Simulated assay, not measured.
Amino acid sequence: MELNEKLKALRQERGMTQEQVAAKLYVSRTAVSKWETGGGSPNLDLLQALARLFEVSVDELR
Results as ranks from 00 to 15, higher is better:
residue 32 V to W: 01
residue 39 G to M: 12
residue 24 K to R: 10
residue 39 G to I: 14
residue 38 G to H: 13
residue 24 K to P: 11
residue 59 D to K: 00
residue 12 Q to P: 07
residue 17 T to M: 09
residue 18 Q to R: 13
residue 35 W to Y: 10
residue 35 W to G: 05
residue 62 R to Y: 02
residue 25 L to I: 01
residue 55 E to T: 07
residue 19 E to I: 07
residue 50 L to K: 05
residue 19 E to M: 08
residue 20 Q to M: 11
residue 9 A to P: 13
residue 2 E to L: 12
residue 52 R to C: 05
residue 59 D to V: 04
residue 44 L to E: 10
residue 17 T to W: 11
residue 58 V to Y: 00
residue 5 E to Y: 13
residue 30 T to V: 15
residue 37 T to L: 12
residue 48 Q to R: 04
residue 38 G to Q: 13
residue 19 E to P: 05
residue 52 R to N: 05
residue 52 R to P: 03
residue 13 E to M: 14
residue 34 K to G: 08
residue 9 A to M: 14
residue 22 A to Y: 04
residue 51 A to D: 02
residue 7 L to F: 14
residue 54 F to G: 06
residue 22 A to C: 04
residue 27 V to S: 09
residue 13 E to H: 15
residue 53 L to K: 01
residue 3 L to A: 02
residue 21 V to Q: 02
residue 37 T to C: 12
residue 15 G to Y: 14
residue 3 L to P: 07
residue 10 L to Y: 04
residue 48 Q to K: 03
residue 26 Y to N: 15
residue 51 A to Y: 01
residue 60 E to Q: 11
residue 55 E to C: 11
residue 25 L to C: 00
residue 61 L to F: 00
residue 58 V to D: 05
residue 9 A to Y: 15
residue 4 N to G: 10
residue 21 V to T: 08
residue 22 A to H: 06
residue 14 R to H: 12
residue 25 L to N: 01
residue 23 A to L: 12
residue 38 G to E: 14
residue 36 E to G: 11
residue 56 V to N: 03
residue 19 E to L: 09
residue 59 D to G: 03
residue 61 L to D: 00
residue 1 M to H: 02
residue 54 F to Y: 13
residue 29 R to Q: 15
residue 37 T to K: 13
residue 23 A to F: 07
residue 28 S to E: 15
residue 32 V to H: 02
residue 27 V to F: 06
residue 36 E to P: 11
residue 5 E to V: 10
residue 37 T to F: 12
residue 11 R to E: 02
residue 31 A to R: 12
residue 14 R to G: 01
residue 9 A to C: 11
residue 61 L to A: 01
residue 17 T to A: 07
residue 28 S to F: 15
residue 33 S to A: 14
residue 33 S to K: 10
residue 14 R to Y: 02
residue 47 L to D: 00
residue 44 L to W: 06
residue 43 N to G: 09
residue 59 D to R: 01
residue 21 V to I: 13
residue 23 A to R: 04
residue 5 E to C: 07
residue 29 R to C: 12
residue 2 E to M: 12
residue 27 V to T: 06
residue 50 L to V: 04
residue 29 R to Y: 10
residue 3 L to H: 02
residue 42 P to M: 06
residue 10 L to H: 05
residue 48 Q to M: 07
residue 59 D to S: 05
residue 17 T to Y: 09
residue 53 L to C: 04
residue 43 N to W: 06
residue 45 D to Y: 05
residue 26 Y to R: 15
residue 31 A to K: 13
residue 49 A to D: 01
residue 40 G to F: 07
residue 36 E to T: 08
residue 21 V to M: 04
residue 3 L to T: 01
residue 49 A to Q: 00
residue 46 L to T: 07
residue 14 R to S: 03
residue 36 E to C: 09
residue 22 A to P: 04
residue 42 P to Y: 05
residue 60 E to N: 06
residue 9 A to R: 15
residue 27 V to E: 00
residue 11 R to T: 04
residue 23 A to M: 08
residue 30 T to C: 12
residue 48 Q to D: 09
residue 16 M to P: 12
residue 46 L to P: 05
residue 11 R to W: 03
residue 25 L to E: 01
residue 40 G to V: 10
residue 51 A to W: 02
residue 15 G to M: 13
residue 5 E to D: 12
residue 26 Y to T: 14
residue 17 T to F: 10
residue 2 E to V: 07
residue 59 D to Q: 05
residue 6 K to E: 00
residue 13 E to V: 12
residue 10 L to N: 02
residue 20 Q to S: 10
residue 51 A to H: 06
residue 58 V to M: 01
residue 7 L to C: 09
residue 3 L to E: 02
residue 34 K to T: 09
